[in-house]
Amino acid sequence: MLPLDLPFAVLRVALTAHEEVHLPPFPGSKLEGAFGRALYRLACTQPHRETCVGCPLRSICPYGLSYAPVQPPEVTASSLGTPPRPIIFRVAFGRDQVVQAGQPLTFGLVVVGTALTQLPYLLAALREVGEQGLGRTRGRLELQEVVSLNPYRELEVTLLKGGDLGVTLTPLVMRPADLPAIDAPRIRLQLRSLLHVKQGGTMVEDLQFPIMIKALQRRMGNLEQVHGGRQSLGADFGALPELARSIQTTYQYLRPASQLRKGSRRGEKTIMDGLLGTLEYAGDFAPFAPLLRLGEQLGVGKWAHFGAGLYDIEEGP
């Protein structure tokens, strides 16, 4: 097991539309952008700066910590050219959707590591997300509640209700050691959002188990070294991918999917692409269970902070 000190909290956010809201099949980037703008308006004390680079408050600002994190000087991993963000949106890939006035919009949000200390700011930003409008028509929404939950134990705590920010500021925090084991000899991964894992600079289309484990190690190690306790610094990242060779890939049904994403700058566009479908593996999953469970909640691969690379684990005989 890769040593990881990586606390996190899973939130469920519920809003109600006041106007029609038009969302794309994968709305994670829209939600992330709206949340970022709301957090910036609440937290930034130096709005005259074009970027967070050079800001003396960057390391303590709620916006800087979440949207422009700084790589710690002791972390030198080559995969950390851009430090990962500690705020992760949990949304599935589906179809274009229109949320009619009066209808609910619900999504998940994961807060990781040091970002948990900024929870009051994050909750306040969630309250502001719908005020400026969301989606293609900028439909306005109103926050109904934010609930902290443990999806493995059916526990829930209400953090915020409507405009009341003082319900509780104590979320249900989980750690890798708290996540359930995987005892079954077979598992199925149902990919809920675009999975884009690279190897040698290109997207992998044959997702053998060692490739998944290597990608999960990279993702969780990077998050832990920037936003967690940094226990994985100097750890052996080669042992688990080598052990993963003993796991058989028994079934793959994957299909490509993509979506155009507009950036924050005028004319900036990106194609988000990846794979959806089903993966089945067979073997002894005990050494890999913490990483697999972390991926189930925090995602893996490119665009994971938008909610890409999410999957559900189903255990089988």
Rank of each mutant, 00 (worst) to 15 (best):
D206Y: 02
K161G: 07
K198T: 12
E314Y: 11
E142P: 01
A92H: 00
L275Y: 10
V53G: 03
V91W: 10
C55P: 15
V13D: 10
I60D: 10
L23P: 08
P171C: 07
R192A: 04
R255V: 05
L194D: 00
G81R: 09
A34S: 09
A34D: 15
P151R: 07
L233M: 02
G163E: 13
E74W: 02
P24N: 01
H305Y: 14
Q225M: 01
D206Q: 03
A125Y: 13
E50D: 12
G108E: 13
L233V: 12
D96S: 10
A215I: 05
G221V: 00
Q297R: 13
Q217L: 12
R85M: 01
Y40L: 13
A124E: 10
E314H: 06
T76L: 12
G274L: 02
P241N: 00
S59G: 03
A77P: 04
L11A: 09
P3K: 04
Q248D: 01
L149T: 06
A282T: 01
L165Y: 08
P73R: 01
L4T: 00
P73F: 02
Q225K: 10
L143P: 11
L169D: 14
Y121W: 14
Q144K: 15
Q217C: 08
R293N: 11
S246G: 04
L254M: 13
L134K: 08
A34G: 14
D96M: 09
V146G: 05
A304W: 02
A181L: 08
P120A: 06
I271N: 08
L80W: 06
Y67T: 11
R41S: 15
F93S: 12
E19M: 14
V157C: 10
V112I: 10
G135Y: 07
G166E: 11
R127W: 11
V147I: 13
L191I: 14
T106V: 15
H227T: 02
Y40N: 03
P256W: 05
D164E: 14
S193R: 05
P62D: 03
E205K: 01
Q144I: 14
D96L: 13
H305M: 00
